[in-house]
Design a protein around this nucleic acid. Sequence first.
DNA 1: ATGTCAGAAATCTTCTGA
Length: 272
Amino acid sequence: MTKTALRIVSWNVNSIRKRIGQLEKLTDAHAPDVICLQETKANDTAFPFEAMRALGFAHIAAYGYGGYNGVAILSKHPLKDVVCHTRRGKRDGRHISAVVRAKNAPPVSVHSLYVPAGGEAPDPRINSKFADKLSFIDCAADYFAAEYGFRDAVVLTGDLNIAPLPSDVWDHHKMQKRIGHTDYDIAALDRLKRSLNWTDAVREIIPPDDPVFTWWSYRQSEFKVDSKGWRLDHIWVSPGLKGSIQSAEVLVDVRHWTPASDHAPVLVKLKP
DNA sequence: ATGTCAGAAATCTTCTGA
C-alpha cells in the first residue's frame, strides 16, 4: 500500500459558521487530513458538526467558549485522548489537543492554540490584556516542557498572535511598538519555542528573509491585502518530526474568498 | 484616531473583542 503525507492545516476562521463554504472549498482544493481551527466562536450547541462531517471530517474535537475564542480539530482519521486545556482551572476555549491515529502511521499529537491578542498598549505593566497574553504563553511553555520529550511526535498549530521575525511584518520598524511584534512578544514566543525545541515549519521551507504573512486587517482596502500583513499563524513540529516536513505554505488566496476571515490558512505536509 | 468584521443582548442599535 502507498503511504501518503499527513496534511495539516491551521486556520483562524473568525466564526466557523460564517466560513462553512470556504472550509468546503479549502477541503476540495487541498484535501487536508487535519484542520486545526481557531476563533470558531461557537459553543457545542452552535458548532456545525454535521456540516463538518459532510466534508469528510468524521472525527471532531471542539472546545467552544460562547461567542468568543473557540478552538477545534477536524480530522479524517480517528482522534483519541482529546483534551480541552484549562489555565489555572478556567475554561477559555483557547487550547485543544488530540492524538491523530492515521492508518499505518505512527500517532501524532496535534495542538490547536489561540493565544490572546493582547490589547493595545505595548507594556504589560499597564496593560493587563498584554500581561495575560504573556502569561498564557509561559503557561503553555511549561505545559509542553512537562508533557513531552524531544522524541515525541507533536505538532503545535494556531493563531499565536505573534510575528517573530522582521520579515513576518510588512514594516518591521513601524511594528516594533505594536503588540504582536514587541520585544516582549518575541521573547515570550522564543520561550515557547524552546519548551520542546520546536521547529517553525514554514521558516524551514521559506527563507527567513522572505516576507510571509497570514493575517491582514479588515480595516484596510482590498488592494493593500497581500502587501501589508503579519505572520501570526504558525505550525511548529517537535524535533522528531523535523525531518518529515515535506512542504509548508500559506494559502494566501483564501484571504480573498468572500466572506473572508482576516487570517489565511497555513498548510504543512508531513512525510510518512 | 481611523478603518471592518463578528457575536451577544437586546433592538430596529450599541456594546465588546480583535
